[in-house]
């Protein structure tokens, strides 16, 4: 065996490593490294005018945690995430159920419809909502015409608008998460429940829902995380008066050039997400105990 052959053999064994290497480098260079840098910044001191003093202080975190204004924003953000998760769950469950059980020839097309919001740019989506929800939009004109209201309702450029917009764009994630558990559930289980005397509600509460809980958890966590870190939709649909963590990060970093504080907020957001994922994993493992034989 020549030296070249030997080298080739050696290299061949490492092929899988070589294949992921570009992605790995990309990931480190453009994700991990900036993140580490940000973590360091979050402990620097802000000097008005846009400069940073390279020290190690906790004042950015302290300000964020102690100031009632920012605490309010944290609370609002979490609440927003919970609301959006709730609404996507309520809207997504029937949709997912139908999608999982349908024998329609147009099943593929139905999937496409469900993920449609993801294929549309946020700007186009928001423009669409303006047509429907603005002061002179379809909803307000109809309600005025039919005499249900006397003044146009404020349906966007406020918190409500953000909830509506996020619910729309995150609905596909919830729907697909639910659909995958419901599809893998044997329909005979529901039939067995009916056969044993359970009506539709009892069947849902005692069989379908408990068995779909892993999907409910996955969908909710996914939607919650994406809702609390969303930036474009809150900005476009909420206007300047709606403030969530992501808009604070943006504002502090780009308008006020307060990088250390902005970094601290960003890291708090990240920590929130991290804790959630950790809890979710724990829950999923304990919740599925009936699946694994002891």
């Amino acid at each position: 065996m020549t030296a070249v052959d030997k080298a080739a053999t050696k290299l061949r064994g490492k092929t899988p490593v070589l294949l992921v290497l570009p992605t790995f480098i990309h990931f480190c260079l453009f994700f991990i490294a900036p993140l580490c840098l940000l973590l360091v910044y979050s402990f620097y001191r802000f000097v008005p005018g846009g400069a940073m003093e390279e020290t190690f202080v906790l004042e950015n975190y302290a300000k964020f945690i102690l100031d009632p204004y920012y605490r309010g924003i944290v609370r609002d953000t979490i609440l927003l995430g919970a609301e959006v998760a709730f609404f996507t769950l309520i809207l997504g469950y029937p949709l997912a159920y139908k999608l999982a059980r349908t024998r329609s020839r147009f099943k593929g097309f139905l999937y496409l419809l469900v993920v449609m919001p993801l294929l549309t740019s946020a700007v186009v989506r928001t423009y669409g909502w303006m047509v429907i929800l603005s002061r002179n939009g379809i909803v307000n004109s109809l309600l005025l015409k039919w005499g249900f209201i006397e003044q146009p309702l404020r349906l966007m450029y406020n918190r409500l608008g953000v909830v509506i917009g996020l619910t729309e764009v995150l609905l596909p994630f919830m729907t697909l998460a639910l659909e995958s558990v419901l599809r893998n559930m044997d329909p005979a289980l529901e039939e067995a429940a009916h056969d044993l005397g359970a009506n539709s509600l009892q069947t849902f509460l005692r069989v379908t829902l408990p068995l779909s809980l892993p999907g409910v958890a996955t969908g909710s966590v996914l939607v919650f995380i994406m809702a609390i870190s969303a930036f474009v939709t809150p900005t476009l649909m909420g206007g300047p008066q709606v403030r969530v963590l992501s808009t604070v990060v943006y504002e502090q970093a780009l308008s006020l050039v307060n990088w250390p504080f902005s970094a601290a907020v960003a890291f708090t957001l990240l920590a929130l997400v991290g804790v959630l994922i950790f809890v979710y994993n724990k829950l999923l493992i304990s919740g599925k105990s009936w699946e694994v034989a002891q």
């Binding site: 009916h194 005397g197 068995l211 009936w290």
Partner: peptide, 20 residues
């Protein structure tokens, strides 16, 4: 009459026991 009020008892091919 819907299945849940017929008082039949069905044994399914894959048993359909409630896994939870």
């Amino acid at each position: 009459i819907p299945p849940h009020r017929r008082d039949t008892g069905m044994v399914f091919q894959q048993y359909a026991l409630f896994p939870h």
